[in-house]
Design a protein around this nucleic acid. Structure first.
Lengths: 76, 76
DNA sequence: TGGGATTTGTTCGTATGTATC
DNA sequence: TGATACATACGAACAAATCCC
């Protein structure tokens, strides 16, 4: 599963949708950490800024919580 | 020798070039430790993030090796 | 055995600038 | 004009490895 830089859908929304799907399917279970920003940058070949924007969406949707120095976690 | 924050050359690349020069001249000899990240932060008035980016360059160029808890050393 | 100091490793928080569309 | 995306740079917090006493 990758991102499409040609798509009309912004990359950060594509990544947010991908991660939301992984959460919905339980692939990323409640309480578990998401991949780090650095890992996601590598996985999808995108900048940290874009990763963070995707995380902002998930946080706004109440799917994750983020802790400085620790990581982002699927909401329980 | 200092860094120029106004230069078009990123600070981390300037620092990498400075350290590379010190290695080339033998001022930092093979096997010897480089100054710690903390020391370099003070010497050049830059953040740890920037110091580490400079180290990344030197490591990629095969000039140094880094060991957690010990330091970075000029490659022998 | 244990604890403290030092050092590097990893993570998120924030701001600025540039380029593109 | 505004949204998107990348790069740079500074902070801050926590973790892990090493060393020494």
């Amino acid at each position: 599963v990758g991102v499409d830089h040609e798509s009309a859908i912004p990359v950060y929304r594509q990544v947010a949708a991908i991660l939301a799907g992984r959460i919905e399917r339980g692939e990323l279970a409640p309480g578990r950490p998401l991949p780090s920003e650095s890992t996601l940058m590598g996985e999808y070949g995108i900048s940290r800024d874009t990763v963070r924007k995707a995380m902002d969406v998930l946080r706004s949707d109440g799917l994750i919580v983020t802790v400085q120095g620790k990581g982002s976690f699927v909401k329980t």
